[in-house]
């Protein structure tokens, strides 16, 4: 079993952090994992994306020809990557700022209003963690508590408030997806 995920959005939306946190938690749950960021002369407001592969066997290529999941936080990312997603794959999109919908009919689409939910929580910066909550609920790649523990490790446990708002944000995204 191997699952490949592409995260994409504006620089500054925490897209690379979404990938890092998934990679960390998958490692902590005993999976093989690779994390590959798109690097380059980027800036805040530019584009950012990363590919995470999670498997129960050695991962050959960290590059995804056909990702199983695509998580897009802005419109340009949706246009860039939607054609790559494998048939019967899944696209999660941040519907707060993406008004378009994928043109493909062979993929499942989840529109998560990350921006609005974040605003309700009082911190727009946690939009990415809200999306992670939705993604992990649906994909079930890692357990929710493993993810939260890894997230806390990455963010550093010094700031109690950060951990608290992230937990809330994750739960909000998690609960947004109905079974």
């Amino acid at each position: 079993m191997i699952t490949k995920v592409i995260f994409s959005g504006f620089g500054g939306q925490g897209v690379l952090m979404m990938g890092t946190s998934l990679a960390h938690s998958a490692m902590n749950q005993g999976f093989h994992v690779t994390y590959l960021p798109a690097y380059g002369a980027e800036m805040r407001g530019g584009t950012a994306n990363c590919t995470v592969a999670v498997a129960d066997e050695e991962i050959a290529s960290p590059v995804a020809s056909e990702p199983d999941y695509l998580i897009v936080m802005n419109s340009p990312s949706l246009f860039s990557f939607q054609t790559k997603v494998s048939a019967r794959g899944t696209i999660f999109l941040n519907s707060s700022i993406i008004s378009e919908r994928p043109s493909r009919r062979d993929v499942a689409v989840y529109a998560v209003p990350c921006g609005e939910i974040a605003q309700d929580l009082g911190n727009t910066r946690v939009a990415n963690v809200i999306m992670m909550g939705a993604f992990i609920k649906k994909s079930g790649i890692v357990k929710a508590d493993t993810y939260l523990k890894s997230l806390e490790t990455i963010m550093g446990s010094r700031k109690k408030g950060v951990a608290e708002i992230n937990r809330k944000a994750f739960a909000a995204g998690f609960d947004f997806i109905k079974d």
Binding site: T20, H32, V33, T34, Y35, P37, Y39, P62
Partner: peptide
């Protein structure tokens, strides 16, 4: 190469 340098693995 750049990919090896940037990629993360356990």
């Amino acid at each position: 190469d750049g990919m090896m340098g940037q990629m993360m693995e356990p």
